[in-house]
């Protein structure tokens, strides 16, 4: 039955007949997808390359490799300029601390709320969830003026703590909505088992439900961290003092000055300092970020 014989399997099995049939829609689609993908990769290359270039190189040779600063033996000149002169170094530190504190606080406040809304069987909880979710649709511009006036009265404008409060509060609708999805998907049995074992409700929440919803909590942390890292409008309104600038805020202020002084190299290095940490985070966590962001919408 089995004769010894060398048979080499094809490297790629044949596709189903007809699946590679020409279709105008498919052809257009493939072209657009190809162009789009290539453009995004080009953008990334341009950004990284330009952050090492002189303004002349940036505009006369946008797709070439950086040469000038390398030739002078100061390849990181733009980054040094942005970090020192434009204050991005300090802003980086401020942003990391602020964003970390906010993300943790948001999840700490939202997780119990999401749990209460989904798993306690309280009548009207679904309606309340919807009310909170509606908050996602409120543009920041709608609340920013009263918030500014109100916080100014208690001297919390031009203050990182004031911005912290605003960030945490305005991130709650999205995070609660995201986490209700996670808590709702957890099985009832474990909670019931814990109750039978005599664990108190508070204890059940902390030792059973929170660990189970860990994936959701981490997703919430990451998504909020990305959102707040990139947030600009509120930081412009609530921070005026250079010493308290976040990265996006610093970039915003630096933009005008840099254009004026033709300090484009330093500016693009500044952009890179804002973008690249998120890019690294994205490369490491792409799947979680994407599923997290689409979870609320896809459900």
């Amino acid at each position: 039955m089995s004769t010894v014989e060398l048979r080499r399997p094809p490297r790629r099995p044949k596709p189903a007949p007809g699946s590679k049939r020409f279709s105008p829609l498919r052809a257009v689609g493939l072209t657009v997808v190809g162009l789009f993908t290539a453009f995004n990769l080009l953008v990334l290359y341009w950004l990284v390359a330009a952050s090492f270039k002189t303004p002349v190189e940036i505009f006369t040779d946008p797709f070439g490799l950086p040469k000038h600063w390398f030739a002078l033996g100061k390849p990181f000149r733009n980054f040094a300029y942005a970090w020192e002169q434009a204050g991005f170094g300090h802003a980086f530190l401020v942003t990391v601390l602020l964003v970390a504190a906010c993300a943790v606080a948001i999840v700490l406040i939202s997780a119990p709320a999401a749990y209460a809304l989904t798993r306690l069987g309280v009548r009207g909880a679904n309606g309340l969830t919807n009310v909170i979710a509606i908050g996602m649709g409120v543009p920041f511009q709608t609340v920013v003026i009263p918030l500014f006036v109100g916080l100014a009265k208690i001297h919390l404008t031009n203050s990182l703590f004031g911005l912290f409060l605003v960030y945490v509060a305005l991130s709650i609708p999205f995070t609660v909505f995201l986490l209700t999805g996670f808590f709702r998907s957890l099985p009832d049995e474990l909670e019931e088992a814990a109750a039978i074992d005599g664990a108190s409700p508070v204890r059940t929440f902390f030792s059973i439900m929170l660990p189970l919803a860990r994936g959701g909590l981490i997703t919430g942390l990451i998504l909020n961290a990305i959102g707040l890292w990139n947030e600009t409008l509120l930081s412009i309104v609530f921070l005026q003092d250079n010493a308290q600038f976040t990265l996006a805020r610093a970039l915003f202020t630096f933009y005008g000055a840099a254009s004026y002084q033709s300090e484009y190299g330093g500016l693009i290095a500044g952009v890179a300092i804002v973008v690249l940490p998120m890019l690294v985070l994205y490369i490491v966590l792409a799947r979680r970020i994407i599923t997290g962001l689409t979870l609320g919408a896809g459900k």
Partner: peptide, 25 residues
């Protein structure tokens, strides 16, 4: 059915060689 390709050999339906025929045909 034509949902998978045929890597070697042939497949005939009636007097037609259907090996590379798209499913609808």
């Amino acid at each position: 059915a034509g949902l998978e390709g045929v890597d070697e050999g042939q497949l005939w339906i009636g007097d037609r060689d259907a090996t590379n025929l798209p499913p609808k045909d």
